[in-house]
Design a protein around this nucleic acid. Structure first.
Lengths: 212, 212, 212, 212
DNA sequence: GACTAAGCGAGACGGTACGTCGCGTCTTTAT
DNA sequence: ATAAAGACGCGACGTACCGTCTCGCTTAGTC
């Protein structure tokens, strides 16, 4: 999944240990749980993984890159159930996402790496590639299914369709993150329901407003 | 504005310099612009402010608290114009908020202190008090005006009204932050317009759904 | 004794701890005994002295400078007894010097810092100032006494006198060091006696050769 | 010359490259010139010699052993001219030795390996075997010639003769090294002349003192 | 002519120490 | 009591070498 190395030089030399990669990423997640982003140190992760500090730096440029890769794996666990109803699909994803943000390793790491990325363009790109853009699949799949069911009109203009998908994604992800991490209020089924109603109403209005 | 110390001890001895406070907060904002959150150091802020490090620690517990106070002042500049239309009001606030997030000091600081706050409850409280909750006034004022104009129905149940206001606030703030800082795409008038349409549609649906 | 700091800026600020200096130099000597030059580390010395690593680096540029100061104090313990005979004086100093070179802290440190100094001019200067030149007093005093006793002629030309003193110093110091550290043979009373005979004979020949 | 490995195991397998040995020793001397003892690293020598690090470690136990072998070759270049006069012979050797010590590779390496050897008995033995004892030939040959010429009396007691040779060797080698590397003053013809006078006078006194 | 055993270049690996930086505290003199 | 100055203990940083290891590939001598 990670593109970190892939050196095209296939020359001699001892190959990198694949087990080390696994151990490091797992140790990173555990350290996030135990210590949080700020107190997590490269040296500690190395010790937990039974690996030398240099081995970490050989693979990752720093704490931020390492943590992005470590949490990225967790985001791939999100999935869209085929419930037969757009409202239910949205509610499900919202609750899954909230549950993920409730895990201590994700909670402490996500905002931190985003904060770092505001003054580190390559890091931002890595976050988008490894985490954010991968989850847009949920929006796209959900819309396609809803269109197949007739719950949503088919959008003929692909450019507009893409913009709408991006908008919906920012709204859903942003609202859940803000509720969970900034307002620090629970994302329970009631909130998810009310939020879903808002989104569906907005989508309907947008569709007709677009048609008008 | 800041509640930072308020030592109840009586007044004997040299009083604290008020100029120092101003200079420190200004120096903090400038350091955020020049260095970003991570590279900003207490020692550097002290030097810029022409103040000793001890003076900083006498007033703030650490970097996070200092930065929260420094950026909080900026958020109070947001204001709701009385444009006569709810849609225009929302668009205006969205664009103002995006402009604020576009400033380097805000961009780099906001996510960082939120990240810190995920494992520091007093800090989270300080953020809510000094920054977040203060901006809910925009939502409340906007709704009251819209209701006065007849654009929105009057919600008789105050508990539900409060929940709706919180929801709207999380959606607007979250979506703009996500668009600006995570997706790192521009929040321009077109995006603001499409987003406003979504919100208004959702509000209408929520209102009728609520009434049913 | 050490000239290391003496900052003429007598401004405010916490003064450097004099106890720290003493503790560090003593810890350095003990570490030399326990570990030898190569395995001695700055971090270990700091720990032994109950001091932070940064405190060492605030006072000394590195391991070499620190060790020079630490062993220099030992060399000042050498003294010339007033035995009434030049031969006895020389033998005494030779044996004292050999005993000093037999101590583990001196043995391991002296050659090492001299080795470093071959590619570090300031370090060489520090060694000369703090260690080598200070011991020339032994040669000068010894000669003066011998002249007073009539054992040696008074040298009228001061330039020649200085050259002879330097020569004698290099011969005595060099021979003892070479015997003790390179040949690694014992510097016992017999060797000291034979060596003293050689020196005295050479001095006599040089004096008459000079006079001739 | 080097005894380094001589594995008694039989001959199966690829033989060690003789060119590699030459290249490594030459690279070592060059690295000493360029970097000095402290900054010379095994990896750097390997790179300069166009060889893998493992190849170095297959032949030498470490940096000290490698450097001893590398500089030992240089010391074998010293030779005693048959000038017909003991004084001239001594002066010649002193100047040759001083010239050797003036070369950067020798200067930086010699004291360093001696320093290491103070806490590494096998290394000291290697230095004596490869460097020091080999040069005693100069003293022995010089004395034999002087005796043949009648400049020096023949010493009947072989034990005493050996002790005297060792003493002279320590005095000459020690004095020149001290003058050149510690005092860092030039070993020019004048100094060599004065030093030779001293030695010859001492020898004469020792001989008569011995005879008495 | 295949087999075998060591040598070899390459480079990753677990370590250790480096010298620096920032933290938040403490100690001094001066207001 | 507060202020400026700056030393202090602490802990993490990212780098550099160490000496070892695992690769795939020669390069001999032995069957």
């Amino acid at each position: 999944m990670q593109s970190r190395s892939t050196p095209p030089t296939r020359a001699g030399g001892r190959p990198r240990s694949a087990e080390a990669d696994t151990a490091i990423l797992e140790a990173t997640r555990q350290a996030l749980v135990d210590l949080g982003w700020t107190k997590l140190t490269m040296g500690d992760v190395a010790t937990r993984a039974g690996v030398a500090k240099t081995t970490l730096y050989r693979r990752w440029a720093g704490k931020s890159e390492l943590v992005v890769d470590a949490v990225a794996e967790l985001f791939d666990e999100l999935e869209l159930p085929d419930s037969g109803s757009l409202a239910t699909d949205i509610e499900s994803v919202v609750l899954q996402f909230a549950a993920l943000l409730g895990r201590p390793e994700t909670k402490t790491a996500l905002m931190a790496v985003v904060a770092e990325s505001t003054s580190d363009e390559p890091l931002r790109e890595r976050i988008r590639t490894s985490i954010v853009d991968r989850q847009k699949r949920l929006v796209l799949t959900g819309r396609a299914r809803a269109q197949a069911r007739g719950e949503l009109p088919v959008e003929p203009d692909t450019a507009t369709a893409a913009m709408t998908a991006d908008l919906i994604f920012d709204v859903i992800a942003g609202a859940v993150v803000h509720r969970a991490l900034v307002s620090a209020e629970p994302v329970d089924t009631e909130w998810a329901h009310r939020f879903t109603l808002l989104i569906l109403g907005g989508l309907a209005a947008a569709a007709s407003g677009q048609g008008a």
